[in-house]
Amino acid sequence: GDDEDDVPETPAPGGKNYLTRTGYDRLRAELFTLIDEERPRIVDVVHWAASNGDRSENGDYLYGKKRLREIDRRIRFLTRRLEIAEVVDSSLHHGSDQVFFGATVHYVDAVGQEATVVILGVDEADSAQGQISWVSPVARALLKARVGDVVRVVVPGGEQELEILSVNYPAPEFRT
């Protein structure tokens, strides 16, 4: 196969792939969309393009084949990640002042810069939205600490001290 350009998974301690329920559902939805909709659509394009004669200069055919490889690679990736996923219900810690997976942590550094981060799974964290993966240096420093604690993070160029100002978790959803 052409697996050599597969994205290497971030090695997680103990091979765990923690995800929130939201993150898990999002990846699962993506997987099913790829399998049920996207892939069959591209297969049709490839078949249609293949019936149009010369494949070497056939843009639709070449693009379709390339897209199909990308889709298949993503399907394999998502399947593997979901197989080892452990869904963590962070609302179980609602009301706690200690940092666990799924926490929203508000902290201040030594020069008074405040920041808020959400500690999420490797496959769901979006740094553009202030989300960090639980294996990142900042998350590792924060995990298990409590409000009022000062933790040390090794960052490029030295060490940083962060004081935890608040810790929040989603409220439990009542399921009837």
Results as ranks from 00 to 15, higher is better:
Val135Glu: 09
Ile164Met: 07
Val155Asn: 12
Gly1Arg: 10
Phe32Met: 12
His106Met: 11
Glu38Ile: 14
Asp2Pro: 13
Pro11Glu: 08
Val135Lys: 04
Ile71Pro: 03
Leu165Gln: 12
Ser51Trp: 08
Ser90Pro: 11
Lys16Cys: 13
Trp48Gly: 11
Asp89Asn: 06
Arg140Ser: 08
Gln160Lys: 15
Pro8Ala: 12
Val117Leu: 11
Thr79Asp: 00
Tyr63Arg: 14
Ile164Trp: 07
Asn52Val: 07
Val154Ile: 15
Ala85Arg: 02
Arg26Phe: 11
Ala12Trp: 11
Ala125His: 00
Pro40Phe: 01
Arg26Lys: 15
Val99His: 01
Glu9Tyr: 14
Arg55Pro: 09
Ser96Gln: 06
Arg140Ile: 08
Pro8Thr: 09
Glu161Ile: 08
Leu120Arg: 07
Pro156Arg: 14
Leu62Cys: 04
Asp2Met: 13
Gly1Phe: 11
Gly112Ile: 02
Gly1Asp: 13
Asp149Phe: 06
Val45Asp: 11
Gly148Asp: 06
Asp6Met: 08
Glu114Val: 10
Asp25Phe: 08
Ala12Asp: 14
His93Phe: 12
Arg39Met: 10
Asp5Met: 09
Asp72Ala: 03
Glu38Gly: 10
Asp25Pro: 07
Thr176Tyr: 11
Glu163Ile: 10
Ile75Val: 06
Gly23Ala: 07
Arg74Trp: 05
Gly130His: 03
Asp89Ser: 06
Asn17Thr: 07
Arg175Thr: 14
Ser91Ala: 07
Gln160Leu: 15
Val122Pro: 03
Ile42Ser: 04
Val150Lys: 14
Val122Lys: 04
Leu27Asn: 06
Glu83Tyr: 08
Asp6Tyr: 10
Arg76Leu: 08
Ile164Thr: 05
Pro170Phe: 05
Gln131Glu: 05
Val138Arg: 08
Arg39Val: 07
Pro137Val: 02
Leu142Ser: 02
His106Thr: 13
Leu78Glu: 01
Gly121Ala: 00
Gly158Val: 02
Ala50Asn: 05
Thr22Glu: 15
Leu19Asp: 02
Gln131Leu: 01
Gly23Ser: 06
Asp6Trp: 08
Ala128Ser: 12
Val7Thr: 15
Pro172Met: 03
Gly157Met: 05
Glu163Asp: 09
Lys66Pro: 07
Leu78Arg: 02
Tyr18Leu: 15
Phe174Ser: 14
Asp36Phe: 06
Asp5Lys: 10
Ser96Ala: 10
Ala50Val: 03
Glu4Asn: 10
Glu30Ser: 01
Arg81Thr: 10
Val147Pro: 08
Ala145His: 07
Ala171Thr: 13
Gln113Trp: 12
Thr104Ala: 08
Gly130Ala: 00
Gly1Val: 12
Pro156Cys: 12
Gly59Thr: 03
Phe32Ser: 07
Glu173Met: 12
Asp3Leu: 12
Leu82Tyr: 00
Leu62Met: 02
Arg21Gln: 14
Glu83Cys: 07
Asp36Thr: 06
Glu70Ile: 06
Gly158Gln: 04
Leu62Arg: 00
Tyr18Phe: 15
Val153Ser: 10
Gln98Ala: 15
Trp48Tyr: 13
Asn52Tyr: 09
Arg140Met: 09
Arg41Ile: 10
Arg152Gln: 15
Tyr169His: 04
Arg140Glu: 11
Asn52Arg: 13
